[in-house]
Nucleic acid binder design. Structure first.
Lengths: 203, 203
DNA sequence: CGAAACATTGCGGGTCACGCAATTACTGCG
DNA sequence: CGCAGTAATTGCGTGACCCGCAATGTTTCG
């Protein structure tokens, strides 16, 4: 990777990260695109060369994570049962990456509160979900590959992809809603188990 | 319902319907809010009293349908198995209502083509999904009521709601993608059956 | 080293969402 | 019936956003 591409990736990451951090700190409405650009050290116009909207910048990390999830599903040994692979890939995606360890959040409590405010922002919800939809095709393709189905004609791989995203989504929402009363890992495992069991009525 | 409320509902419906029709005819980008307002016979400013965005106007019927779905789930006899009730409610929601019969689409083929273009519009995808998310809580509450779970603490009802929406979403997308090669009713039935069976690997 | 490819930036235009205040229309009560 | 209160519609003005375009500077590659 040449200097050019590296700088581009850095700028993109800086913009995205600044967008998230500032949104958590000040709220979505109060945040101007101008501020994000300033925090990343580029002009406002450049911001729009990387992201076509404020919301997209904020949710781009979410999309990245989902794309990595799809890649991880592909990476798993083909012999592994499908749902084990899916649950495993999801759990792997929630381990804090090296960049999070390098730049830890200053105040976790305040951060979580800001996150809650952020995800309740209408404009961001739509964009988040859109990122999920974009990743869905990728995941469906990975599932199709594993199961010998055809994403172009079979309903199955798309249904699995949608179900997986539904689990991840529901779990994270639930985790935030209940104030992190249960660890994400446990909720994820439970969620995948329930879906794989057909979500039978309890009792 | 007094004259006031009726006119309000009419204006709302007229705006929403005009927004959909014009989007299908001309495309999302080319359509100005001004045009929608004109087609509904109100001022552009009034449009924003009813809907806070072009996208919201277009997707409002989708949201209505999902809310009716939740109501239908509540209406079903409590003795009915959960997944039968969910599938039944979904199927009921796809029967054409009286207003569709009264105002049929002029050219179904062209209409379907326009719909495909419409749902591929990024801004609308987000808003559609947001409508789904809004309805999710409603559905989760209905499911919680039926199953004796608690939407405030249990993961189960939310997971079921998300899964149901995933099925409906996937089926409609698949239906459009494959050019209506299979009837929606059959796809829906299949989808619900697969999910209720835990989406086992085929073969 | 030189040319081509590419990123960044400023400028300008078109659109959009919304607060505010005035006008008009409906509602319910005496 | 009339009247006061409540609510809906509208025009205007503002701030923000997204993007096309062209100029400038930087990296890449032959």
């Amino acid at each position: 990777m040449g200097l050019r591409e590296r700088k581009k990736a850095e700028t993109r990451a800086a913009l995205s990260w600044a967008a998230i951090r500032l949104t958590v700190e000040r709220g979505y409405e109060a945040l101007r695109v101008e501020d994000i650009a300033a925090a990343a050290g580029v002009s406002p116009r450049t911001f729009n060369n990387y992201f076509s909207s404020k919301a997209e910048a904020i949710t781009s990390r979410h999309l990245d994570r989902l794309v990595r999830f799809a890649a991880e599903v592909r990476r798993r040994p083909p012999a592994e049962p499908l749902w084990d692979a899916l649950a495993g890939a999801a759990l792997a995606g929630f381990e804090p990456g090296p960049e999070v360890i390098a730049h830890p959040v200053p105040d976790p409590v305040q951060w979580a509160a800001g996150l809650r405010v952020m995800v309740s922002e209408p404009a961001l919800q739509g964009e988040m979900l859109r990122a999920g939809a974009a990743a869905r095709d990728e995941i469906a393709a990975a599932v199709a590959e594993r199961t010998g189905t055809d994403a172009a004609i079979d309903l199955y791989p798309h249904l699995v992809a949608a179900a997986v995203l539904a689990v991840v989504d529901t779990v994270t929402t639930h985790h935030l809603r209940t104030g992190a009363s249960a660890p994400v890992e446990r909720l994820l495992t439970e969620g995948f188990a329930m879906v794989a069991a057909g979500l039978p009525e309890p009792r």
